[in-house]
Structure formats: structure tokens, C-alpha cells
Amino acid sequence: MTELEKELGEQVRRDYKAVKYFPFGNNSGAPFILTSDPFSYLQAWLDSKINGIKKDRGKKRKLYIKAKYFAELGEGFHISSKQARMPAKGTMIYYSLINLVKAYLLVNGYDLETKTEHHGLSLPSNKKLNLKLANINDSGVSIFHEFSKVIGVEIKNVDGNEIKLDEILRELPEVHEIGYALDLFPNTKRKFLPIELIIRTNSTRKRIYYTLAYEKKFDKIMKTDKLTKGIFKNKLEPIECKSDSSKKYYKSKLVFNYTNNSDTSHKMAYKKICADIKDLRITPMITRNGYRNYLNLEPSRMHRLSATLAFAYYIGTVARYRPTLNQEILKGKYQSIIQEAVNSCPNQFFYLMTSYITNQICAIPMAKIE
């Protein structure tokens, strides 16, 4: 045991594997599913679900069959997008994302095709950088609204029925740094704080909690004082760590008893820990070396994946209906950040959505070579 572990507690383990936080509804200590093709894995997983249901009294099998259809459709648009150039590429990306979203809704019990479905967003002809949220009523299904609800951050029209492109882009961690390098978000500070999040236990392995840490250098470029306010203040308390002076540490106020050698206790403890962490709006980013976590210091009204879907809708709609605006956007100040988002956001979306749909941790194999 290291000095840091003696001071803060050791990392919780299950079957000799470190127990880490993920927002996917996975089990405690679940293994990584390494796949270089999340679409193929998702379709194989859906096949296993379809074949495992013999008597479909609850129509679950029917929903899985539809989900597989949309997953295959999403893959088809993704393949087409890789062969296309902007602006056509933007349209293909949007259709690949929204079809994966439909698969996610179906797996979560939404029986699509029963009502008129609409995107839930529009780009008014008199607007250039503002998307409009569709009105919600019982006559149709807004895919964007229902997705935001199920993914955990419901977007409501009462907060304003327009979403600015700047708001969308600032909610994408993949392009966060380039946005600030290009001075696209004036009068704001960077908000995605790289953190180390560890689920820990005390020396007797009878109590469970979590700690959050970040490097002190970020105090100068981010509003880290927010960690002492609002939701952060309610859930975290600062602690002194003598064995590591380069970071600032926080401990969860949630601490409860558990039985280390009990499967039932582990599952219950992990579920409670994940529920507590979820409200902090921690954003996972997948890399070839595993997942990295970022704390959103100024979360907007959108989940990060909702923002990705809104971005794809914007570039796809501009491509289809607004040739003059397309020229302005692709040649103007947003050119570099849009190109970066087009290159990096879809793959993140595919892996994360596959993890959410399957309740497993999908990751990129280190052996994958681009």
C-alpha cells in the first residue's frame, strides 16, 4: 500500500480488478469490452438479445429487432460518411448518429413507429447560428427531447427555445481546447477539468466512498472555485493530502458501510456511488489507453451526447438547405473547430452510445492502428 493509499484509502477492487466509475449502468468491476468496431459489437449484442427471447409477451424482442435495424442503418450512414467530403459528410454523420439514438430509445422501451417522429430541432430561415427546439405535444415524438430525457439531462423549452452554436460547441470536450485557442468563447474560462476519480475503501474495508483530485495548475485557467459551491459543495468536501502536494483532493460526503466479500453488497454500493457521482456531470473521454474523466465545471442544459447530436443536426441541416450559410461557416471563424468536431466527435459518440445501450464498458484496443 502506498503512502497516498494509507492516507486516503485504497482503491476498491472486485475479483482483483479495480472498481471504477462509469455512467453506463455496468456492474461493479465489469471488464472492458475491447472492440475496434462498436457497430459490429452492438449488432452482435442485439442478436444475442433477440435470440435469447423465445416468448415475447412484453414485445421486448420486437423492440430489439427494430433497434438492430436502426443500428445497421446507422452503420451504413457512417460508412458513407467516411467516403464523403464536407458538406455532404455532415449529413451522413447526422443520420448515423440519430439512427444509433433510435436504437438506444428502443432498447429503453420506446416503441417507435407508433407516432409521428421528428428531429426535435430546426434551423429557422432567419437564423444562422441558433437552432430552435420543437414544441412538445402528444401528437408526435421529439427524438432530441426523448434522447436527452433518457440519457439523464432533460432539456426543457422553458429554459429557452433556442440553442446557440457556441453553447453546443462549448459542450463538446473533444474540441474544447481548440475553441479557446481560436478565442471562440470570449469572456469565459475553460470548463472541462481533467480529474482523477477513485472509488476507495478504508483500512478495514468496511466503508466505501470516492475521492476526486486535479492538478493545482488548473486553478489559474479554470473556475475551480466552483468546487466549493452548488452541487459540488453538497456532495464533496476538500481534504488535505500530505503525500501529494501537486494536486487538490476532495472526498465524497457520501460514505456508507458495505461488506467487502459480498456480491450483493458490492452491487448495491457501486449503484449508490454511481448515482451520487452522476449528478456531478462528469464526462468520460475514450482513448486508446482507456477512459479519462473530465469534470464539467459549468454544465449547460444539455448532456454532452445531446450536444453532439445537436451539432450533427446543425451541420447536416446547413448542408441540405443553406448553401450560402454553409460557405460562411466553412470559410469563417468556425472552420477549424467544425472540422475538428467532424473528425473526432462521431467515434466518441459510437463507443459511448454502444456502452450505454449494452450497459457495458466498450473501449478501443491498444492494438488498433489507424
Rank of each mutant, 00 (worst) to 15 (best):
M1G: 12
E5Y: 13
E5L: 02
F22K: 03
F24W: 15
S28W: 00
F32A: 11
I33Y: 06
I33S: 03
I33H: 05
T35E: 11
L42V: 12
Q43S: 14
Q43H: 04
W45S: 07
L46G: 06
S48G: 01
G52Q: 07
I53D: 04
I53V: 15
K55W: 07
K55S: 12
R57W: 13
I65T: 15
F70P: 02
F70T: 09
L73M: 09
L73F: 06
E75S: 12
F77Y: 15
H78L: 04
H78F: 15
H78K: 10
H78I: 00
S80F: 01
S81I: 01
Q83R: 15
R85N: 14
P87S: 08
T91E: 11
L105S: 06
V107E: 10
V107Y: 08
G109E: 10
G109M: 11
L112N: 08
E117L: 11
E117G: 07
E117T: 11
L121M: 09
S122A: 15
P124D: 09
L129Q: 02
L131E: 03
K132I: 01
A134L: 02
A134H: 14
N135S: 14
N137Y: 06
V141E: 12
F147D: 05
S148P: 09
V158H: 03
N161L: 01
E162D: 01
L165I: 15
D166I: 07
L172Q: 05
L172E: 07
V175H: 04
A181H: 08
L193K: 10
L193F: 09
P194L: 10
E196V: 13
E196R: 14
I199A: 10
R200A: 04
T204C: 00
R205F: 02
R205D: 02
K206L: 03
F218D: 02
M222P: 08
K223A: 14
L227G: 08
G230A: 04
I231D: 07
I231A: 09
I231Q: 06
K233G: 00
N234D: 14
E240K: 14
K242S: 12
K242P: 00
D244L: 03
D244P: 02
K247W: 02
K248G: 00
Y250K: 03
S252G: 12
L254R: 06
V255T: 13
T259E: 15
N261V: 07
D263C: 00
S265V: 08
K271D: 11
D279M: 06
L280V: 10
L280H: 08
I282M: 06
I286H: 04
R288G: 07
R288M: 11
N289D: 15
R292S: 12
L297V: 08
E298K: 12
P299Q: 07
S300P: 03
F311S: 09
Y314G: 05
Y314V: 06
I315C: 11
R320L: 14
Y321G: 05
R322V: 02
P323A: 10
T324P: 00
L325A: 10
E328C: 00
S336E: 15
I337Y: 08
E340C: 05
N343W: 01
N343K: 15
S344C: 05
P346C: 10
F349V: 02
L352R: 13
M353E: 04
T354I: 00
T354R: 00
Y356F: 15
Y356T: 04
T358Y: 03
T358F: 02
T358D: 02
N359S: 15
I361Q: 06
I361D: 02
C362A: 13
I364D: 12
